[in-house]
């Protein structure tokens, strides 16, 4: 049998550290111990931190949920989605309208927001994905803008002012209205999102996305329906965004078109690309960067987007796989 060797040795200190970490966590016991520690820490975190830090952490979990959804589309299926905030808006407004105008219970609104996202996803995904994958990018960009215009101009969405009076969710008799409540709610959502992503990634469907990403024609020749498989990714990913939007609406109790701008779509995308497309830890890392950098470096305020633009360019040019490294490859020795 051919010898197995790791990728060529590197002198980059970052890579050496990462490789050491990979090797360390090769041992499943260490890995599970680490995960248990991390989860344990995050569970007690609200008891040892200020409301302000809890707010930031809640925002981080929220980013993880939404960006993992976007990652299904961009990372797994290799499709660029530039209107993700629109799907997020679809979810938020579905919940917002049903809750504030019709008094529906929060939990009941979630299936509606998923259905709305699926319909919207089919309406723009089907005509576009039938053609070329990269048309999706610009069509979603247009859809993002159209959605924002629509919610600005309709009465039912409250126009430019938006909706107020969205009801707080009630969970086993407790009305969720403290920041720590939302901290736990989004924490649980993030964990669910990670598990769902992990299971999808390592499944028949996840592999099909990878095959299409690698070689569309070969995938078709292997019996994979390229259009429907992509459409699945697009719709599942968009539904993640809609669910994120529903919870966002419940947390804020008021929403307006300003929360669903193109910039937000770009920030979600940033998180996915910076950390590493298609890699769950990468997306978590990317979300941390996007949420925490502006908090840590407050001075960058107006320059934030310019800096992120350059970061995106540099990542694409020099490290397209993102900051999080790929698993070391096994190759045959000649």
């Amino acid at each position: 049998m051919a010898e197995i060797k790791k990728k060529a040795k590197t002198t980059n200190p970052f890579e050496i550290i990462v490789e050491a970490l990979f090797n360390f966590f090769e041992n499943k016991v260490y890995l599970y111990a680490f995960i248990a520690l991390a989860v344990g820490f995050l569970i007690i975190f609200p008891n040892v931190s200020s409301r302000f830090t809890q707010e930031i952490m809640t925002n981080l979990f929220f980013y993880v949920v939404v960006c993992l959804g976007l990652n299904i589309i961009v990372g797994y299926a290799g499709l660029l989605h530039l209107g993700y905030a629109a799907f997020f808006a679809v979810g938020a407004y579905t919940t917002g309208i049903l809750s504030s105008r019709m008094g529906m219970d929060f939990w009941l609104t979630i299936p509606f927001s998923v259905v709305a996202a699926v319909i919207a996803g089919l309406a723009i995904g089907f005509p576009t994905l039938r053609l070329r994958g990269d048309y999706l990018a610009i069509v979603t960009l247009g859809f993002g803008e159209i959605t924002r215009l629509t919610i600005r101009n309709l009465d039912i969405t409250g126009g430019a002012i938006g909706l107020i009076g969205i009801q707080r969710p009630v969970f086993f008799g407790i009305t969720l209205n403290q920041i720590s409540h939302f901290y736990y709610m989004f924490f649980i959502l993030a964990i669910i999102a990670i598990i769902v992503s992990y299971r999808l990634e390592n499944s028949r469907m996840g592999r099909a996305w990878a095959y299409i990403r690698e070689d569309e024609d070969a995938a078709a020749a292997m019996g994979i329906n390229v259009v429907t498989t992509r459409l699945y990714a697009f719709i599942i990913g968009s539904s993640f965004g809609a669910v994120g939007g529903s919870f966002f609406a419940a947390k804020m109790t008021a929403i307006s078109p300003d929360s669903f701008m193109f910039i937000h779509s770009v920030m979600f995308l940033m998180a996915v690309v910076l950390g590493g497309m298609g890699k769950i830890p990468g997306v978590v890392l990317g979300s941390m960067l996007v949420v925490l950098i502006p908090e840590v470096a407050r001075g960058i305020g107006p320059y934030r987007l310019l800096i992120f633009g350059f970061l995106l360019l540099i990542i694409m040019l020099y490290r397209p796989q993102g900051i999080w490294p790929d698993k070391p490859a096994i190759s045959a020795k000649e």
Partner: peptide, 30 residues
């Protein structure tokens, strides 16, 4: 920005174009 990406996956060059767009309009905005 684009020439180094000509042989890269299509997704990468699309994201590069987005980055260029962000850089341009944010510069002019500032």
């Amino acid at each position: 920005a684009y020439r180094p990406m000509l042989k890269a996956p299509r997704l990468s060059i699309l994201i590069t174009a987005l980055a260029v767009s962000m850089i341009l309009y944010n510069t002019v905005m500032l």
